[in-house]
Design a protein around this nucleic acid. Structure first.
Ligand SMILES: [Zn+2]
Ligand SMILES: [Zn+2]
Ligand SMILES: [Zn+2]
Ligand SMILES: [Zn+2]
Lengths: 161, 161
DNA sequence: ACACTAATGCAATATTATAACATTTTATTC
DNA sequence: GAATAAAATGTTATAATATTGCATTAGTGT
């Protein structure tokens, strides 16, 4: 069982994500400004989706200046447009995308207990959705899949109680 | 192509939904009170997910008394618990369930244009989700699937332009 | 330097949802 | 049927999330 949520050097996740973002923005000729970088770093602080106002608070802590909500939301919009983060609708929260170079809508397994979100990279769900949609003559544009449950880690922990 | 969204007697949808709800509540020994019925009727006014505050406005129009938000949300909570409505997280809105007797989390195709929501009744998506989740040792509890796109109706309409 | 555009700052407000407590209605027991 | 308990609703206030509109600043090209 390879589980990114246990025993991994998360600093690598952060560094990689920021490096990918810098590279991607340069390639696309869009600006990876300070506030955008701060917000992305905040989203990548861990693997748990984070709310806009939490991001705001974190930035206020780190930099002694408190951005207003629109500032954070604009940065998030930019990151969403460029596929650097995903929005988790059921949590009103945002999480880093692990493959921003490939345009996609993320599919997530969200642990009710530890709150970590695992982004799936398989196509079986999209295939199933497309099959069902086709039966209704429905043209899929943005499939949103957010599965709440209990991750392998947390299941083990509660087994050992 | 059988599409519930075109050419159907929607009064039947409403009447059936309310009848099912009455019956279900009686069977479960829970109370289908006036406000709960009003809210459910409002949700079933059409096939488009409707927000809590819109429901509030509609009830205010119909009955000359304006329920406060908690009243509407409590009625919605009751209807959710009893599977009579589903919540569409990506729209912060609620829509009637077409099969409340069978406990399930709904999967929806949501048209970006006409805003109608089609509830799927196939199991292929759940199968795909379970397959993907199993690979991660993840125990699925509540899969949320909300697919935005363009319905058959609206595709035809834009073709004929 | 000038004009132009993109990005950010800032104040106010909109939208969605809940907390806390009072009152009323309904069911149960004596 | 009155006393009691439980459930449902009313009411006020407020929390949490998100956007609008306009002013200011920072880059970009001429
Ligand atoms: Zn990590
Ligand atoms: Zn992603
Ligand atoms: Zn109908
Ligand atoms: Zn349903």
């Amino acid at each position: 069982m390879h589980n990114i949520l246990q025993q991994h050097n998360h600093q690598h996740c952060i560094d990689d994500a920021l490096a990918r973002a810098r590279e991607l923005c340069q390639r696309r000729q869009v600006k990876f400004t300070r506030i955008r970088e701060q917000v992305l770093a905040c989203v990548w602080a861990n693997h748990q989706p984070v709310g806009a106002y939490t991001i705001l608070e974190e930035i206020a802590k780190d930099s002694d200046r408190r951005p207003a909500p629109p500032t954070v939301y604009r940065a998030l919009d930019f990151l969403l447009e460029n596929g650097l983060v995903h929005r988790i609708a059921s949590l009103n929260a945002f999480v880093g995308c692990k493959n921003p170079n490939h345009h996609h809508q993320g599919h997530f397994l969200i642990c009710r207990q530890c709150r970590n979100a695992i982004e799936l990279d398989t196509d079986v769900i999209n295939s199933a959705i497309n099959a069902a949609a086709t039966q209704h003559g429905f043209a899929v544009e943005a499939p949103c899949v957010e599965v709440v449950g209990c991750c392998a880690n947390c299941q083990e922990l509660s087994d050992n109680e």
